[in-house]
């Protein structure tokens, strides 16, 4: 059961012609038909992919430590932290350090009139329409008021295949990894997932 975006990057289907040309490039009589070879390839590739996707876990690829923001922090503080660290989102924690939600650029944009999709261009359109910036009314809000909650989280043992599935299913871009008490210990972004493919080599 592959989520749709994973199926899209499935391997290129081999054509008989590719197999025949490869066979021709090898010395000697190759004792297999192109169709049988393709069948072996298809099954072997699926097995290899499964093995690789399950070999690495969130703990291997996550960014840690994670920059968590307190629920009560104001938005200037939060925006400054995100800007300084060059990240687009972070987990939000309550007073006990347990994860309460996730705040990201999208949450800010939504406050600025981006609508449900959180599109930046929607904000531009709104700004132009109203002849002004829409960020100022947010000045008095706290992170807890704009964050997306509850947070979608996962334990460090989740596999890359599992993470990819969560990204697609929940349509999110970052997955906070939490310990048994719900405290964030790291975060896996879509970028981390892409980089992990290089690790798989």
């Amino acid at each position: 059961m592959n989520p749709p975006s994973i199926r899209e990057c499935a391997p290129v289907e081999l054509a008989d012609e590719d197999v025949l040309r490869a066979m021709k490039a090898m010395q000697g009589y190759i004792d297999i038909t192109p169709a049988d070879f393709r069948e072996v390839y298809r099954v072997a590739y699926a097995l290899a992919k499964e093995r690789m996707m399950n070999a690495l876990k969130a703990g291997d690829v996550m960014s840690a430590p994670v920059y968590a923001i307190g629920e009560g922090a104001d938005l200037i503080e939060a925006a400054t932290l995100l800007a300084e660290k060059g990240i687009s989102g972070a987990p939000v924690v309550d007073r006990d350090g347990r994860i309460a939600g996730v705040v990201s650029e999208k949450d800010f944009l939504r406050q600025m009139g981006a609508g449900r999709t959180g599109a930046f261009m929607q904000v531009i359109a709104e700004c132009l329409r109203h002849k002004g910036c829409l960020a100022t009314p947010m000045r008095n809000l706290t992170v807890g008021q704009i964050m997306t909650a509850p947070a979608v989280t996962a334990p460090a043992g989740i596999t890359l295949a599992g993470i990819a599935a969560v990204f697609v299913e929940k349509n999110i871009n970052r997955l906070p990894i939490v310990d048994g008490d719900g405290r964030p210990v790291g975060i896996v972004t879509r970028g981390d997932l892409v980089n992990s493919y290089c690790m798989l080599g």
Binding site: D16, L20, M23, Y29, D31, P34, D36
Partner: peptide
């Protein structure tokens, strides 16, 4: 359903 392997 398929074809012969190439000649040598």
């Amino acid at each position: 359903h398929t074809q012969s392997p190439p000649g040598v």
